[in-house]
């Protein structure tokens, strides 16, 4: 089976500063992999590097096809839905327009309609807020919108950058429950970056732990979770 995403010896730079020092990992179709680590470990940078939003060196293959060096929008068009840090809401547009923008690249009307209904089913609150300006949504609602926008692309891989950030625990649980459903029903692979390691390990099947731009350990999520030494030294709980 060809891996959905393969990253090999990936290095990333912000100006002169190197933020990733050769990261290698892969993700199976339909799998959920999580990247864990402290602040500044390079988790967000890894996601950004996959979408060519920072200067990178290294090989990235999506579904066996090399995508390194492609423009961000072209990578997205391959089927990579990136839910960015800060959610990337189009604040001056309505919720409806946000969703329409997200489906901009698609020409299959019926499919778009279907995905719309799917999104409404996952997040009924968005349907109630369709005409509302997206900037006025609550943080949780904006996160739901961000995930929905990525879904409207019809992706096969979603890159999720701290979906729990700044949200109340109840809402976080809700969002993670939906993410599990999305993974199961829409057969979307997920690469999840999280500060909240306990939560992420609950959802993911594989985990990689990053430290200062390097992968320091990896394994099955359940193994990582049950290994107290790792939890204590790297994940802080």
């Amino acid at each position: 089976m060809v891996a959905l995403l393969e990253v090999e010896d990936l290095k990333a730079f912000y100006g002169q500063t190197q933020a990733l020092h050769g990261v290698t990992f892969s993700l199976q179709p339909g799998g959920i992999t999580t990247l864990l680590g402290a602040n500044g470990a390079g988790k967000t940078t890894t996601l950004r590097a996959i979408c060519n939003m920072v200067r990178t060196v290294g090989a990235i293959r999506f579904d066996g096809r090399p995508i390194e060096g492609l423009a961000t929008e072209e990578i997205v068009r391959c089927g990579v839905g990136h839910v960015p840090e800060g959610r990337g809401t189009f604040t001056n547009m309505s919720v409806d327009e946000n969703l329409r923008v997200a489906a901009y690249t698609r020409s299959d009307k019926a499919g778009v309609e279907r995905d719309r209904e799917m999104v409404y089913e996952y997040f009924p609150i968005l349907k109630a807020r369709l005409a509302q300006q997206a900037g006025t949504l609550s943080g949780g609602e904006q996160q739901m919108l961000a995930i929905s926008r990525a879904l409207m692309l019809g992706p096969r891989l979603m890159l999720l950058d701290e979906p729990s950030f700044g949200l109340a625990p109840l809402i976080v649980q809700e969002i993670f429950r939906i993410m599990r459903r999305i993974n199961g029903e829409a057969k979307v692979g997920m690469l999840l970056v999280e500060q909240n390691a306990a939560l992420a390990l609950e959802l993911a099947d594989h985990a990689y732990v990053l430290e200062t731009g390097r992968i320091v350990m990896s394994g099955k999520a359940s193994d990582v979770k049950s290994n107290e030494a790792i939890r204590k030294s790297y994940l802080g709980y």
Partner: peptide
């Protein structure tokens, strides 16, 4: 129109527009 929306998106938030596959 989708194109008009995409243009607005690109003007408002280029980074986010790219992540929607828009050729900003």
């Amino acid at each position: 129109t989708p194109l008009g929306l995409a243009m607005r998106a690109a003007a408002q938030n280029p980074a986010s527009a790219r992540l929607a596959g828009i050729r900003v």
